[in-house]
Design a protein around this nucleic acid. Structure first.
Lengths: 173, 173
DNA sequence: TTTTATAGTGAGTAATCACTTGCAAATGTA
DNA sequence: TACATTTGCAAGTGATTACTCACTATAAAA
């Protein structure tokens, strides 16, 4: 991976996240990355290939982040760790997550699959804790996770700490 | 509002929701609506004007839907009605909501303002019920609402009824 | 009847789109 | 050194883009 390749990926990630994939021309990406437009196609074949490369990068990162949750044994800790996820995102990664969340509405497969192991871990935790309907509870937890992440990425709630506390409260017993 | 104007708005709504605003050409909209391309610009000035007209339509509809929640007095009923919102969406309105939720990531102002009265009603309800931090609780409730709506619009959870039940359970006391 | 206004068309327009090509410079590798 | 490969650029390509313009159709008002 040369420096210019990285520049292209970084510029594309920013622009795709800010303006959307379709609204971002390869010309804009090239200018933002400080390279010729042709180089994008040399390295990534076409515009979709560029998006695919970004998603590959993203998938690797998310695997690392989510691994900790899935490997946890204590059921209550699993739930708490899932709830904490959106609150411990590194602000440097915001553009990455914004891209993922925005693309969800255009491309289906990318997001749901990625969270499947988390959902399974949650379901398992709820089973261990004796919840009435672990399947529904895990579905609900992922909805909450999604909603919290959206709020943080879009309008940064005033008192994040208090919101997290209120969330955990709902899963005390 | 002539029939062709309505056709344009309806076709644009569908296409914008399915493929995104930027990825939908005015040519496509005209063909789907069965009118000449020029007519779009006669009635809506430009492509953004078309989007603005759609959002105006949408804003009127949401006002009607949300009015019922805001006018409710009993605090527990307010919370339940907010939670139920995503579950009682008319499937015919799915494309409308998908467009709104997708556009959230490109245009900021449209969505947050619209939910402000709901958030206020929720905060008021939590205050009446003696919750520790009504501000944080109302923020959390809106996150949950957002997450639930997203799940329903994107991948239609298996047992919606059970999820709603689990949600209400969290606000029993 | 003439005028005015609105609704609608279809063929343009310049600009921008994703993408290709030919060629030069840099970088390995023997 | 010589040669092969990769990296990079500039200048293209045809297709598509949002939008304009000159024009017609309909119909109500003057």
């Amino acid at each position: 991976m040369t420096e210019k390749q990285e520049n292209i990926l970084s510029a594309a990630l920013t622009l795709f996240a800010e303006q959307g994939f379709a609204a971002t021309s390869t010309n804009k990406v090239a200018k933002a990355a400080g390279v010729s437009e042709g180089l994008i196609f040399r390295h990534f074949k076409n515009k979709e290939g560029l998006l695919a490369a970004i998603f590959e990068m993203v998938t690797e990162r998310t695997k690392v982040i989510l691994a900790d949750v899935v490997m946890t044994n204590d059921p209550k800790e699993v739930i708490y760790k899932i709830l904490e996820l959106p609150f411990v995102i590194n602000p440097r990664d915001y553009r990455m997550w914004r891209l993922i969340y925005a693309m969800k509405w255009q491309i289906q497969q990318y997001n749901t699959e990625k969270m499947e192991p988390v959902k399974l871990a949650a379901k398992n935790a709820f089973e261990k804790l004796g919840y009435d309907n672990p399947e529904a509870e895990s579905e609900l937890l992922l909805m909450l996770l999604d909603g919290a992440a959206t709020a943080i990425l879009l309008h940064e709630p005033r008192d994040k700490e208090a919101v997290l506390l209120a969330m955990k409260e709902k899963y005390k017993h």
